[in-house]
Amino acid sequence: MSLYSKKLSISTPWAIFIVAVLLLLALGTFTILKTEKDFLGNEGPLWVFASGVVSGLIVTLAQFCLSWADAKAIDRFRHMGVENVLTTRDEEAYFGKLIQKARAQIDVLGSTATRLMQDFADLNSPKAEKQSLIEALKKGVPVRILVASPAHLDSDDQYKYSLTRKRFEVIAETYPNFEARYFSATPIAAFVRADHELVVGPVLPGVESKHTPALHVYNHSPYAASYLKYFEETWKIATPLSDMPPLEPQQ
Rank of each mutant, 00 (worst) to 15 (best):
M1C: 12
L3C: 10
Y4M: 13
L8Q: 08
P13K: 09
A15G: 12
I16K: 10
F17D: 08
V19K: 10
L23F: 10
L23V: 12
L25C: 10
F30A: 15
D38R: 14
L40I: 09
L40E: 09
E43T: 13
G44V: 01
V53Y: 11
V53I: 15
V54D: 05
L57P: 07
A62I: 15
A62N: 07
F64S: 11
C65Y: 11
S67P: 04
D70L: 11
D75S: 04
R76W: 09
R76T: 10
H79R: 15
M80E: 12
V82Y: 05
V82M: 12
E83A: 14
T87C: 07
T88K: 06
T88G: 02
T88I: 06
D90R: 08
D90T: 07
D90N: 11
A93F: 06
L98K: 02
K101C: 10
R103D: 11
R103E: 14
A104S: 13
L109P: 01
G110E: 00
T112E: 03
R115C: 09
L116C: 02
M117F: 08
A121P: 07
L123W: 06
N124I: 02
S125F: 00
P126H: 01
P126R: 01
I134D: 00
I134K: 01
A136R: 09
K139Y: 02
G140M: 03
S149K: 08
P150Y: 00
H152K: 09
D154N: 15
K160P: 08
L163K: 13
R167G: 06
E169I: 05
V170E: 15
E173D: 12
E173Y: 06
E173P: 01
T174S: 12
A180F: 02
A180I: 01
R181M: 00
F183W: 07
S184M: 12
S184E: 12
T186G: 11
V192C: 06
A194D: 05
D195I: 07
L204P: 06
G206P: 04
S209I: 10
H211I: 08
T212I: 06
P213D: 04
A214W: 00
V217Q: 05
Y218I: 14
N219F: 10
H220M: 05
S221Y: 02
P222H: 00
K229V: 07
E232T: 07
W235F: 03
K236T: 08
K236E: 10
I237Q: 10
T239E: 09
S242R: 13
P245I: 03
P245C: 00
Q250H: 13
Q251T: 14
